[in-house]
Design a protein around this nucleic acid. Structure first.
Length: 152
DNA sequence: GCCAACGTTGGC
DNA sequence: GCCAACGTTGGC
């Protein structure tokens, strides 16, 4: 069992969009970074814990808990010429971008980035490291435990 | 809107 | 394989 933080811009897809989705689940499409892709393709397992994070918004931070709800499969948007995520170099026979489904566990109170930065228990979080921009980052078991407890 | 930091691209 | 130029992310 592993844990992850996954960023989404709420203007694009928010925690409420996830709550309103069929089965409260969504394919995590649009990731176009190899390291983030590799986390989904090679390391995520069904049931892994996910911190659902809003970025590029008024109050960036964790807005809820989710979980990985599928094994990896090709991101369809890479083949869709009308999608902003279209990748002309991707082929059906050789997909370049893989994703997993993410399912809502529960909305929580907001754990803002500002608050996260004040918590010594979270000082080593990958996503808080200077210069980190990755949309998917690993979360340690200790960090996960602390955050889920802290949000109760 | 700014800009620091980083990833990717492509010429050599 | 290097690395400058460029594009993107994301907090502020």
């Amino acid at each position: 069992m592993a844990y992850w933080l996954m960023k989404s811009e709420p203007d694009e897809f928010s925690i409420d969009d996830l709550a309103a989705a069929p089965k409260q689940s969504t394919p995590w499409f649009g990731v176009r970074n190899y390291m983030a892709r590799n986390y989904m393709r090679d390391h995520m397992r069904v049931g892994d814990g996910v911190l659902f994070y809003h970025s590029s918004c008024e109050v960036p931070g964790v807005y809820g808990l989710a979980e990985v709800s599928s094994t990896p499969y090709p991101d369809d948007s890479q083949f869709d010429k009308k999608s902003p995520y279209y990748d002309p170099k991707a082929k059906r026979e050789e997909p370049r971008w893989m994703l997993v489904d993410v399912k809502l566990v529960k909305k929580t109170r907001v754990l803002s980035l500002e608050e996260m930065r004040t918590l010594p228990q979270l000082a080593e979080m990958v996503t808080l490291k200077r210069g980190n921009r990755l949309s998917i980052t690993p979360v340690s078991a200790a960090e996960w435990k602390f955050i889920t407890k802290h949000l109760k």
